[in-house]
């Protein structure tokens, strides 16, 4: 039993270099709950893990629930934990960002947040 426990701990300590986990939101631009003075060109969300672009999405909705993003969600070329979607010029108001991602080990996570465009 001691051997099993020892090996289990060894895997945990040595294993993470090849393991992935649930992808949580690490940071976003515009940042979660923030107010920006001008319309951003895109929403960028960086996750704690690399994500699968084919099964991952970001949608941006205005206050009346209409999707306003350009529906061109893409993974950053160099950072596979960074997902981006382009935006048109946004009017002043509150916008809701809804994301759903699949990390490379197939775990699914989702979330949403708002940001405000001041003018």
């Amino acid at each position: 039993m001691k051997r099993i426990i020892f090996v289990f701990f060894l895997i945990i300590v040595a294993g993470p270099a090849r393991l992935e986990a649930h992808a949580f939101l690490k940071d976003a631009i515009p940042s979660v709950g923030s107010t920006v003075q001008t319309s951003p060109n895109e929403v960028r969300i960086r996750f704690t893990e690399n994500v699968e672009p084919a099964f991952s999405s970001i949608q941006v909705f205005n206050a009346s629930g209409k999707e306003v993003d350009k529906r061109d969600v893409r993974l950053d070329r160099t950072d596979h934990a960074l997902l981006r979607v382009s935006l048109p010029s946004l009017e002043a108001g509150i916008y809701k960002v809804v994301w759903r991602v699949v990390s490379v080990d197939t775990h699914v996570t989702s979330g949403n947040f708002t940001f405000q465009v001041a003018r």
């Binding site: 949580f24 939101l25 940071d27 940042s31 979660v32 709950g33 979330g111 947040f113």
Partner: peptide, 10 residues
Amino acid sequence: LIYLQEQVRD
């Protein structure tokens, strides 16, 4: 605080 940072306000 995870939820606060990710879903409400950074």
